[in-house]
Design a protein around this nucleic acid. Sequence first.
DNA 1: CGTCTATTTGAATGTACTCAAAAGCGGTGG
DNA 2: CCACCGCTTTTGAGTACATTCAAATAGACG
Lengths: 190, 190
Amino acid sequence: MDLLLNNIEQRVSLTTKDKKTISEKFRKKSFKRKEVIVEAGEISKHMYFVTKGCLRAFYTDKNGFEHVVNFAVEDWWIGDFGFHDQSAATLTIETLENSEVLYIDKNGMDSLYEEVSVLDRYFRIILQKALEAQFQRIMQINSFSAEERYVAFSKKYPQFDKRIPQKYLASYLGITPEFLSRLKKDLLKH
Amino acid sequence: MDLLLNNIEQRVSLTTKDKKTISEKFRKKSFKRKEVIVEAGEISKHMYFVTKGCLRAFYTDKNGFEHVVNFAVEDWWIGDFGFHDQSAATLTIETLENSEVLYIDKNGMDSLYEEVSVLDRYFRIILQKALEAQFQRIMQINSFSAEERYVAFSKKYPQFDKRIPQKYLASYLGITPEFLSRLKKDLLKH
DNA sequence: CGTCTATTTGAATGTACTCAAAAGCGGTGG
DNA sequence: CCACCGCTTTTGAGTACATTCAAATAGACG
């Protein structure tokens, strides 16, 4: 819980009362490796703040192929967009390691926004950063080759490169695992 | 100005005083076709709300190629990310038609957030929608062919298809203008 | 109406994919 | 703690979608 409160306090100020209110609305849950915590097609009931471990969010396209859209580790938020209007999730979210999350449902979130109004600002800021990151990603897809995207990723997130199975990283980068394997081989030869 | 206030009131409630405060912070400006209103590399001083016309935002990659990342028409926001920390713009924003915008600088925005706190919520909601749209876009890039992306776009935004020069649409879709031309030809043959 | 820009068409090419199979590695059970 | 099984990664060969470069045609703005 401290991790979450700290994260919020990096962007906005909280009173002791605010912190208490927030703490009471979230619940903690642990998952083992490879557990599905949100299933595509079902109502996406919760938002998650990761306090331990690593997760991936992916969708399955019309041909049955999975595409990873995001990873999340400690100190990151993760959830499906359906949360905001309580509609069916398009994403499946699964742990890649034994993990621990704080979660909250829509009612809890709505009441939090009313009781701790500074959270509107907190999430506005979080969302601004997230949106910018997605634009950067689209810009990379447009003008970087697969090799350049891989190099940029492993430079930006050196921790992830080792923590995440290659096939999920390939999927996130928008390339096949076979091709990523070849890229890495070529990069070793300089 | 009514267009902006209406847009805001679709998401949050405003008092008469709020509306007055907001109106006073924005200024109106008109641009002719093909005018650059934000230049990549310069400090991105303003956020824009389009009240008339059509604009494109693009960046220039390391090989000198332009890539359109967004369009904006009436009732849409547009700006560069650098706005939030008053850093250099990565995007150039240019009018595609004679256009009219409401604009605000960083100081104005900051004071607006203080004086009309419900705007934090308004932009939180706007940003949630924008973020979801960008994820949808990445999902399309991942699992749709160029032809499918074009068909999806012209179905979703039939107005744009005719309003925007093909080469900019091709750029937005992440394909060459030559290839889009071929796609359209093939689609006519059913 | 003329010029400049956008679009179309053609031909050759490249980046990344598909399918298939072998090799390597890691988690789970004994 | 080791061994096995299954999943992940690697390697190979052929292929496709989209690009590049060049030139002709069409269209729009002033």
